[in-house]
Amino acid sequence: MSAAEQAQRAKTTRNAWLLVIPALVVLMAAAIGPLVLVLIYSFLTPGDYGNVVWSFSLDGWQKVVVERDIFDDSLHLAEAHLTIFWRSVSLSLVTTILSFFAGFPTAWFIATRPANQRAFWLFLITLPFWTNLLIRTFAINQIIRNEGLLNTILLHLGVISAPLQMTYTEGALLIGMVYVYLPLMVLPLYASLERFDLRLLEAAYDLYASRWQVLMRVVLPIARPGIVAGSILVFVPCLGAYVTPRILGGGKLMMLGNFIELQFGQGRNWPLGAAISIVLLVIVMAALLVYVRAINGEKRDG
C-alpha cells in the first residue's frame, strides 16, 4: 500500500467517525448516560430531603434484600421488598400465560379470516391504544369495584348475596394487566400465524396426527417465534407496570414500578430506588436473553 493510499484510507476512517458522532451523542444522552447515572446513584448516600449525598455507600444495595432493625441494628431479610419482587415476577408470569391463552385463539381467528377482513379485526385489537391507559384502568375499576357493574349484575341475578371484593386484590391486578397487555401478545402471534401454511394442518391430519397432536407438533412449533416475541412484549412491561397496580392495587399491592417511585418520592431514598431499578433492568435483560436464545435456537435448527 502506498503512502497516498494510506493517507486516503485514514481520511475515510476519520470521516466515518465524524459521521457517527451525532448518533453517538444521542445514544449517550438518551440511553447510556442516564443508565450510568442511575448506577452511580445506587452507590451513594441518600440525602435528607431526597436527592443524594456524594459519598460512597453500599446501603442502597444492601437494603434491596436486607433491612437493619431499628432497635438492635441486627440485619434480617427485607421481607416486604422480597414480597414485592415475588409479586412483580409472579404476576408478570401469570399475566403472560393468561395473555397467551386468550391471545392465541384470537390471533388464530384473525389469521384464518379472509385476507380483506383481517385489517378490520386487527383494528379492533389496537382500538384500546387510542384511549389513555389511566382512563382505561379507571374503567376497569368501575366494573369490578363493590358497587360496580359486575357486582351489581351478579347481585341482581342472585349468584352472590354480598358484593365480591375484587378491587385491591392480586386478581384485580391480573385482570387489569391482561387487559392492557393482551394486544402486545396478539399482534406478534398474528404475525407468525398469518404466514402459517394451512395446508400443513391437512398434511399432519393425513399423517395420523390427532387434533391435539396437530396443535402441539405442528402449529405451536412453527408459531414459536411469535409466541416468544409476544411473551417478552407482555412480560417486560408487566414487570415495570406502574399505573395498573397503583389504581387497581390501591397502593396496598405494590409492584416494582410503584416501589421505585416510592423511594424517589415519599421514601426519599434515591440510592435504594436506583438499586431496585438496576435489579429490574437485570431481570428484563435475563428475559431478553431467553428470547435471543430461543430465536438463535430456531436459526441453528434452520
Partner: peptide, 13 residues
C-alpha cells in the same frame, strides 16, 4: 390412506 400434496406441504420446522 396417505396423500402427496401438490404443494408438498412438508413441515418446515
Amino acid at each position: 390412506i396417505n396423500t402427496v400434496f401438490q404443494s408438498y406441504a412438508l413441515f418446515p420446522h
